[in-house]
C-alpha cells in the first residue's frame, strides 16, 4: 500500500463527489456541478471518470477499465494501474467479474447486472453546447425543458447529409425530462442505456456529474420520418464471428487490406474461448 488515501482523493472530496452522484441519481440526466479536483493526469484523459470511480470504489470492489471497448490501450492501462496503486483494489478485464467499470466511449456488449456500476468519462456534458454557447442560457433551457434546439441540430444533419449523420454522442431524453449527452459512445450503444446497472457520468474539465439509475427510460431523439437507428458496420467480427457487436475497422497492410473486429475485446475473447470462429481467425 502507498502513502495515498484510499483511491487517491481525500475523504472530504469523495464525500462531496458522492453527494453530487446521489443528487444526479435523484434527478436522472440533470448535470450536477461539482468541485472537480486536479488529478495526476491531463484533462481529456478521464479526470471526471476517475474522480467518480474514486468516490465509488470500496476495498471489496473489482475494477475494469476500458477505452473504446479495449482493456489494453494506454488510457485504460494507466487508469487501471492508478487504482491498483492508490486503492489496491482487484482489477479484471472480464466484464462479468467487475463491480465497477470505467469506460471511455463504449458500453460493454455483455448485459450488465444490478450489482454493477458503469462510470463514463465525459468530455463535453452539455448537449446543447454546439448551438448555444451561453451557459446561462443552456441552464435555463434545461430548467424550462426548451429542447427545440436539439432537434435543430438533427434537422441540420438531415439537411446536409440526407440522414441523421450524428453517429456518436447521440442526444437522448431521460425519463421524459432532461436531454442528456451520453458521452461519445457510438449511437449503436444508445439502446443499451436502459440497463440494470447504475450509470454515472463524470466530466472533469467541465465540472459536471450526471447519472442514470437502473432501468431509467432513455429515448434517442429523432424525427417521425427519420427514426433513430442504432447502426454498425454491416459485417461479422473477423475473429469471433459475432454479428451483434460493435466493430472496429482495422487496416492490416498497405494494399488496402482491412478487417472488422469487435471493439469490445473482452467480449471477443470470451466468444473465441467458447469456440466461436470468424473468417479471418488464425
Amino acid at each position: 500500500m502507498s502513502d495515498y488515501n484510499f483511491a487517491y482523493l481525500d475523504e472530504q472530496t469523495k464525500r462531496m463527489i458522492r453527494r453530487a452522484i446521489l443528487k444526479g441519481l435523484a434527478i436522472p440526466g440533470y448535470q450536477v456541478p461539482f468541485a472537480s479536483r486536479e488529478m495526476p493526469m491531463p484533462y481529456g484523459w478521464g479526470t471526471g471518470g476517475v474522480q467518480v470511480s474514486a468516490a465509488t470504489l470500496t476495498p471489496d470492489d473489482t475494477l475494469k477499465v476500458i477505452d473504446q471497448g479495449a482493456d489494453d490501450t494506454t488510457n485504460a492501462v494507466s487508469i487501471r494501474k492508478f487504482f491498483e496503486r492508490t486503492a489496491d483494489v482487484a482489477t479484471t478485464s472480464k466484464t462479468a467479474e467487475a463491480t465497477v467499470i470505467q469506460t471511455r466511449h463504449r458500453i460493454p456488449e455483455e448485459v450488465l447486472s444490478e450489482d454493477q456500476i458503469l462510470v463514463y468519462q465525459v468530455p463535453i456534458p452539455e448537449p446543447l453546447r454546439f448551438l448555444e454557447p451561453r451557459e446561462t442560457e443552456t441552464r435555463k433551457m434545461h430548467a424550462l425543458e426548451e429542447y427545440g434546439l436539439m432537434h435543430v441540430k438533427l434537422y441540420e444533419d438531415i439537411a446536409r447529409h440526407g440522414h441523421i449523420a450524428t453517429s456518436y454522442a447521440y442526444p437522448v431524453e431521460v425519463q421524459g425530462r432532461y436531454v442528456m449527452d451520453p458521452s461519445p459512445i457510438p449511437k449503436f450503444d444508445n439502446p443499451k442505456m436502459e440497463m440494470a446497472a447504475i450509470q454515472l457520468f463524470g466530466a472533469g474539465r467541465e465540472q459536471r456529474i450526471y447519472a442514470l439509475p437502473p432501468y431509467t427510460k432513455v429515448v434517442s431523439l429523432d424525427f417521425d420520418d427519420h427514426p433513430f437507428e442504432a447502426s454498425k458496420a454491416p459485417h461479422a467480427c473477423a475473429l469471433c464471428g459475432a454479428e451483434d457487436s460493435y466493430l472496429d475497422e482495422v487496416i492490416t497492410d498497405d494494399q488496402g487490406g482491412r478487417m472488422f473486429v469487435c471493439s469490445d475485446t473482452d467480449y471477443c475473447e470470451s466468444r473465441r474461448a467458447a469456440g466461436h470462429v470468424g473468417k479471418d481467425a488464425a
Partner: peptide, 27 residues
C-alpha cells in the same frame, strides 16, 4: 438568427420548439 444554422433550420426552430417532429413537414 442563428448564424451557424442553415436558413431552413433557422425558420424551423420555432416549429421544433413547439413540438414539430416531422422533418418533411418542417422543411
Amino acid at each position: 438568427l442563428r448564424m451557424n444554422v442553415s436558413a431552413g433550420g433557422n425558420v424551423g426552430e420555432r416549429l421544433m420548439a413547439v413540438g414539430a417532429r416531422h422533418y418533411g413537414d418542417i422543411r
